[in-house]
Simulated assay, not measured.
Amino acid sequence: MLKVKDLSVSYGGIRALRGISLEVPEGKIVTLIGANGAGKSSTLRAIAGLVKTSGGTVTWDEKHLLGLPPEDVLARGVALCPEGRRIFPHLTVLENLQLGGYGCKNKAEVEAGVERAFDLFPRLKERSWQKGGTLSGGEQQMLAVGRALMSDPQLIMLDEPSMGLAPILVEEVFHIIAQINAEGKTVLLVEQNAFAALRIADYAYVLEVGEITLEGTGRELLDDPRVVEAYLGG
Rank of each mutant, 00 (worst) to 15 (best):
M1C: 11
G12D: 05
S21C: 04
L22R: 12
V24G: 05
V24W: 05
P25W: 01
I33F: 08
N36V: 06
G39H: 06
G39D: 09
L44Q: 01
R45V: 01
I47S: 09
A48W: 09
L50A: 04
T53S: 11
T53F: 06
S54Q: 13
S54W: 14
D61L: 15
D61M: 15
L65V: 01
V73Q: 08
L74R: 12
G77F: 08
V78C: 02
V78D: 02
A79L: 01
L80A: 01
C81I: 07
C81K: 12
I87T: 06
F88Q: 05
H90S: 12
L97A: 06
Q98T: 14
L99K: 12
G100I: 08
Y102C: 12
K105W: 04
N106Q: 13
K107G: 09
A108T: 14
E109Y: 11
E111V: 09
V114H: 03
V114G: 07
E115D: 13
E115P: 00
R116C: 12
F121M: 10
K125P: 09
K125L: 10
S128G: 11
Q130W: 08
Q140V: 04
M142E: 10
M142Y: 06
E160H: 06
S162F: 00
S162T: 07
M163C: 12
M163F: 14
I176K: 10
I177M: 03
Q179K: 15
E183R: 15
G184D: 06
T186W: 08
L189D: 02
V190T: 05
N193Y: 10
L198E: 07
E208N: 10
V209M: 15
I212E: 07
L214D: 10
E220M: 01
V228A: 15
V228M: 15
Y231W: 03
